[in-house]
Structure formats: structure tokens, C-alpha cells
Design a protein around this nucleic acid. Structure first.
Length: 332
DNA sequence: GAACTATGCGGAA
DNA sequence: TCCGCCTAGTTCA
């Protein structure tokens, strides 16, 4: 479900609230009982997001690899230190509401009064925001500790103050350091991992070597990490590229432009928790666009609606079993 | 309460 | 290329 920005936000939450502390691990649902038993009691040493995957390192050279897939989500509760680089810290991360935002982030106006670039010591909160249907009703029982288990919790990680519940992941496995490195080695560059210039080089090389349509390459996690169906459609529109263009036929300068756009979009997404792809709109224009559900992007989810730029009806087609939205005129 | 949908992906065919 | 995973929100009856 979440694209790369959400996973980076989650990793920051773990960095703030779990790294350096011993963790109690359990699998209330039972499907990760053995893994949880192995993790239980270990200190968390580091956490890292690469693309759509998160890696949590514990003492004893054990790595937890989590991929949220389409449905996965982390719920944080209890006492939470807010990472000053992200908009807010609490609640559900990964799963998003229909507007396509992380539920932990305000829907609107995050760049204004709730400024993200605030400096200073992390704030401490003791909120217990619950957004999903499955977990609602607990907001008034925020003092309960440990939090009651609601729904299918694959893995619960708890320090003495903070609780993180994982539901519905595609992958939740333990790895050795070598296995973890092998997993990362298969992934394309992530703008927030390593040197972005080196990432650009790898991306350009990978794209321009293949005859595969650029729309498929952007979704290929071996080519570039973290881009999902929303960012894919929006990036191609922003670059005015026909989705069917073979990678090798996309001019090198345009490929570089795509990478740099991903660098920008990911940074904004991590800060705000929103996939803000219409950043060149004025504040008022953006507000107006946000006013209607499913109408916050250039082309994503806008089948049949007039293109915001030229008025042509936005097309929907299936490509690689995923829905592709694009403007046949702007992206001719 | 059923049906449908989803920002993903691995494996079977 | 299609299916299944496995969860939750929305829509519709």
C-alpha cells in the first residue's frame, strides 16, 4: 500500500522510539510466533528504510525485514517521541485513507502552521490516536497499557513506553546480515539511501538499457526503489512522457529529470506524509484541488476527467496488471 | 452485511 | 498472465 515515503516515515519513528532500547516482541496473531520469540528481549540497534522495505537491526546480528505490501500498516501507540523532521508522529502509518495520505498526517495545510522544519528538541506526546475502523474506540482509553490487541496483529514490538503493532504485511521475516545485504543489493537506488548522484547514475544506466516501457521501469524496484502506482503516474505526467516509451528511447536528460523529480517528491512525501505531486500549484489552487476526494493529483484516479492542463480526458489502461492513468495529449 | 477497491508482489501456470 | 495473499475502508443494497 504505502509507497516509499511512508516507509521512510515509519523508519524514523522506530529510530526515535526504539533504537537503543530493549524490545518486547510478540505475535498476537501467531503467524510470526517463532520470529517474535527470537527477537524478544533484544536491544534495537538500528533501523533503515530502502524503498518499500524496512530493516530493523537488533543485537546479535539479527535483522527484521518488513514489507507492507498492499495492506500492511504499523500502528504506534503509547508514549511517542516525535521526529522533528516529520509532520506528526502518532497513529497509523502505511495504510492510508482515500485521500491518499498517511493517516498520521494532517490532510491539509501541513506546510503552514504545522511547519515540518521545526527545529529543537523532540516533542513528547502521550496521545493514542486511532484512525482505523478496527482500532477505533480506543482513543478514550489511551491510558491503557499495554494497549489491547485489536485485529490481526502479526507482530507487536514494545519498549517500556512505546508500542508498535504490525498488521497485514506482505513480508515479515528475520534475516542474517548477509541476507539483509543481499536483499538490499537487489534493490534499485533510493534517493534517501547513499549518494543521490550515484543513484542517478544507476537509474539512468538501468533505464536506458531496456526496451521495457518507462511506465513499467518506474515500478520496477530493481530499477528504482520506492515508486508505486501513484508516484509513477504523476511523475510521468510531470515529465510529459508517454508511458509506453521504451526506456532506451527516453532522452537521457529526461531520465535524469525523472530521477531528480523522484528525489524531490520523496523528500516532500517523507516530510508531509502526503504524496504531494501538484507542488507547483499555488496554495489556493492546491486547497481547491484537495477539496474533493480522489482529485488531488494530475492524473492518478482521474479516469475520464479533463486533464488539468489541456482538458483532454484522462485515460485508464491496464499495464502489467496495474492501473495506469495518463493524458494522451500532454504525454503524447 | 455483502461487494468492491487499494499506494504490492511472489509464485503458479 | 493470472491468482492468491490478507487487511481495512468505502459503497451499495
Amino acid at each position: 500500500m504505502p509507497e516509499g515515503h511512508s516507509v521512510h516515515r515509519i523508519a524514523r519513528q522506530f529510530a526515535r522510539n526504539f533504537v537503543g532500547k530493549p524490545v518486547a516482541a510478540s505475535s498476537p496473531q501467531g503467524r510470526f510466533a517463532e520470529g517474535a520469540a527470537l527477537l524478544d528481549g533484544r536491544a534495537v540497534e538500528s533501523v533503515q528504510a530502502v524503498g518499500k522495505q524496512m530493516f530493523l537491526e537488533t543485537e546479535g546480528d539479527l535483522w527484521l525485514r518488513v514489507h507492507l505490501g498492499l495492506y500492511g500498516a504499523w500502528d504506534f501507540s503509547g508514549e511517542i517521541l516525535v521526529d522533528p523532521t516529520i509532520a506528526s508522529a502518532n497513529g497509523r502509518m502505511g495504510q492510508t485513507n482515500q485521500r491518499g495520505t498517511d493517516l498520521d498526517a494532517p490532510i491539509l495545510d501541513t506546510a503552514g502552521e504545522n511547519s515540518l522544519s521545526s527545529i529543537g528538541a523532540p516533542r513528547k506526546t502521550r496521545v493514542h490516536v486511532r484512525m482505523s475502523e478496527a482500532t477505533k474506540g480506543l482513543a478514550d482509553e489511551g491510558s491503557e497499557w499495554p494497549p489491547p490487541v485489536v485485529g490481526q496483529v502479526r507482530l507487536r514490538l514494545m519498549t517500556d513506553a512505546t508500542c508498535a503493532d504490525l498488521r497485514g504485511p506482505t513480508a515479515c521475516v528475520l534475516q542474517t546480515p548477509d541476507e539483509m545485504l543481499a536483499t538490499v543489493a537487489k534493490l534499485g537506488p533510493d534517493p534517501l539511501v547513499g549518494d543521490p548522484a550515484e543513484g542517478e547514475r544507476r537509474f539512468v544506466t538501468a533505464v536506458r538499457r531496456k526496451a521495457t516501457p518507462i511506465a513499467l521501469l518506474l515500478m520496477d524496484q530493481a530499477v528504482v526503489s520506492g515508486i508505486g502506482n501513484v508516484y509513477r503516474a504523476e511523475m510521468l505526467f510531470r515529465a510529459k512522457v508517454n508511458p509506453h516509451t521504451p526506456g532506451k528511447d527516453v532522452p537521457e536528460e529526461v531520465v535524469r529529470e525523472l530521477w531528480r523529480d523522484w528525489v524531490r517528491l520523496l523528500a516532500v512525501g517523507v516530510e508531509t506524509g502526503q504524496m504531494m505531486t501538484m507542488d507547483d500549484l499555488t496554495h489556493d489552487e492546491y486547497r481547491a484541488a484537495m477539496a474533493h476526494r480522489d482529485d488531488r493529483h494530475w492524473v492518478y484516479h482521474r479516469t475520464g476527467l479533463p486533464c488539468r492542463v489541456c482538458g483532454t480526458a484522462i485515460l485508464l489502461e491496464e499495464l502489467g496488471a496495474r492501473k495506469l492513468y495518463w493524458c494522451p495529449s500532454c504525454q503524447a
